[in-house]
Each structure stands twice: as C-alpha cells, then as structure tokens.
Amino acid sequence: MSEIKKRLSSILESPNHHTDDKLQKVCHLLDQEIPYFNWTGFYFKNGDKNELKLGPYVGAETDHTIIPFGKGICGQVAVSGETFVVPDVKAQDNYLSCSIETKAEIVVPIIKDGEIVGQIDIDSHSIDPFTSDDREMLEWLCEEIAKIL
C-alpha cells in the first residue's frame, strides 16, 4: 500500500495542477491500481446547502449528481462524519443504487477545520472486497486532501 500512498502524495503535492485535476488523477490512480475499485469519485458540500455535489470521478455515469444529507451511504456519511463500509449493499435499507453491478461501497469523509467538506466514494462489483488497509489508506488520503482544499 505504501507505493500507492507515495504516488498519491506526489499527485497531491504537484504545484502545477488545479485541485480538481489532482482529484481526477487520484481517481484514475485508484481505479487503475485496485482492481475491485469499480467507481471512484468525490462528492463535496454544495455551498451552504445540506447536500453533496458530485466532483471528479472515474467510472460509469451516475444520476446522483446531487445527494441530500442523510440519503444513501454518502448522505449518511455527510451527517455522521464517520467512514462507512458496506460489505453488501443489498443488506442496506438506505442505499442509493448507482449501478446494478455495485455490490459493496466505502465512503470516507473529508474533514477540514472540524467541518465535513466532502468525501471519497468507492463502489465495487464484488461483495465485501474492502480491507482494513483500504480503509486506512483512504482515511489517510482524505486527511491529505483536506490540506489542499
């Protein structure tokens, strides 16, 4: 995992790229390097509204460009501020389906100055693929992203 972290750090530290470009590169890297990351994207708080707005992502198009706080896994993380790992989306009552192929999801909040400003959302076509290393790496990544926002 440390090799991926090094590559993610170099993307985030690049002085020549806009933040959205960096986040798009992060999505591409994770998508290419981790075979069971089948949709990787960012959502950010939409101004003063209690909703999330889709940011850079890699994967199939989604209708969920705006997600109200509390709706679905992303909306729940926007309220709780806690990482949410869903081993099997069929077992979740409050799940917003992006794709019939999605079997599992992990959402990690991005917190800056004590406020939830966004999150990374990853869907997988496999049941229960996410490891504790994945979670640790994504939580580290979100802390690093908060520093450049």
Rank of each mutant, 00 (worst) to 15 (best):
I73Y: 03
F130E: 07
V85Y: 06
A78G: 05
S124R: 05
I34S: 10
E105R: 09
H64D: 02
P35N: 14
E105I: 09
K90V: 10
Y36R: 03
C98E: 06
V58Y: 06
V108T: 15
E105C: 10
F44L: 00
V77M: 12
I122N: 06
P109K: 04
V108S: 15
D88E: 14
E105Q: 12
E33Q: 15
D128K: 14
D93G: 10
D128S: 15
L96D: 02
E33D: 15
D31W: 14
H125Q: 08
V117C: 05
G59M: 03
E115H: 06
E61W: 05
Y36H: 12
N50V: 02
D123A: 11
F37S: 06
E82C: 12
P68C: 02
V89T: 13
I120M: 12
S99P: 07
D63E: 10
Y43D: 00
I111D: 02
Y57T: 10
T65K: 15
S124D: 04
A78Y: 04
V85K: 09
V58E: 13
V77R: 06
G81V: 03
T102K: 08
V89A: 10
K49T: 00
Y57K: 12
P35C: 08
G72V: 01
T131E: 08
K112L: 08
Q119M: 15
K49S: 01
C74V: 02
Y95I: 06
V108N: 14
G55M: 04
I120E: 07
P129V: 08
N50W: 06
K112S: 11
G118C: 04
T83H: 11
A104H: 14
D88V: 09
E33S: 15
P129Q: 09
E33H: 14
T40R: 11
E105V: 09
V79S: 02
G41R: 08
F44D: 00
G72I: 01
D93Q: 14
N50S: 09
E51S: 04
G59F: 03
E51C: 01
S124A: 09
Q92S: 11
L54F: 02
K45W: 04
Q92W: 09
I116P: 00
I100W: 09
C74M: 05
I110W: 02
V89L: 13
N38E: 05
Y57A: 11
I127H: 14
D134V: 09
I122Y: 12
D121N: 11
P109H: 05
L54D: 00
E105A: 07
G72K: 00
N94F: 13
I111M: 04
V89C: 13
T102P: 07
K53F: 00
I106T: 06
T102Q: 13
N50K: 12
S132E: 15
